[in-house]
Design a protein around this nucleic acid. Structure first.
Lengths: 146, 146
DNA sequence: CTAAAGTGTCAACATGGTTGACCTGGATGA
DNA sequence: TCATCCAGGTCAACCATGTTGACACTTTAG
């Protein structure tokens, strides 16, 4: 059992570390379970997610977002294209670049996965209140910047 | 380049997903870099951290906290004991259980690693303000519960 | 024409996790 | 007392995800 009310956790910054760890773990394992039923992994989710959010992103752009090597990206991306979830088109200005987009079925899977996470987040925001929601967002923005 | 101000990110719940992802990534890679200089990994950090926060935790307790198999825990834990960073004592009531504790040098390394993360968090909390800090904590608590 | 950039792919390797099987030794209840 | 359960340790096979290095191809740009 995970007891976050343990009296040993006095320092609130230490508590924040644990909250971050456990919250993130809970945040990722729902979509993970959906994915593993299809033989896909977390990488595939991240790829689907970012292509969905940034249509026509290039392979290079994806690499920078995910901060992985192109070799690590290549296999799962190709797999998603072979499964018909992601489509690619040569760029108009520069025909070397591939503009990546979700297909209809890609959008469907992406929505299913992301929905699991947004439902989780929305529930927490609702319970904590609008003010807390705003505070959370502000702190997260600082963490991303810093 | 990671551009979180991209106009495509309209839905704030989607933005929250990205913030969570990028914030967590930034949060973990500082201690990771300290560790890799000593040939240790993130697992070792988590072990040191939780033993530090919950002195006399048992191996079983650690397994439940980390949610990994005992085989995954065994090697890094043994390594930490061989390095003299973690000590163990047989339990008084039940002599099967091992009560794990940090040694002096274990506490030193743990403090160094954790300090990197608390400094990061403290900076974000300071910039975002006390109210935002409270909101962040409230939302995180809900996420851990949910 | 040449250099650089975007993409693709092969190979070798490291890490960190899994499950299954089996062992020791201490606790415990019929 | 004896059978059984539980904490812990260890071996083996396996898998997912990542890395670097090297090389090829196409296209763009100087």
């Amino acid at each position: 059992m995970v007891d976050l009310d343990d009296p040993a956790l006095s320092d609130d910054l230490h508590e924040a570390i644990e909250q971050f760890y456990f919250a993130y773990r809970g945040f990722t394992d729902r979509p993970d379970r959906i994915l593993e039923r299809r033989g896909l992994g977390r990488v595939h989710h991240r790829i689907l997610y970012f292509i969905g959010r940034r249509p026509d992103v290039s392979v290079r752009g994806l690499l920078d977002l995910l901060a992985v090597s192109k070799q690590a990206l290549n296999a799962p991306l190709r797999q998603l294209m072979e499964m018909g979830l992601v489509g690619a088109e040569a760029g108009v200005e520069d025909r070397r670049v591939k503009n990546l987009r979700l297909t209809a079925s890609g959008r469907k899977l992406e929505a299913e996965l992301t929905e699991a996470q947004t439902r989780h987040l929305r529930a927490a925001f609702d319970r904590a209140g609008a003010e807390a929601h705003a505070g959370w967002t502000a702190v997260m923005a600082e963490l991303v910047k810093g």
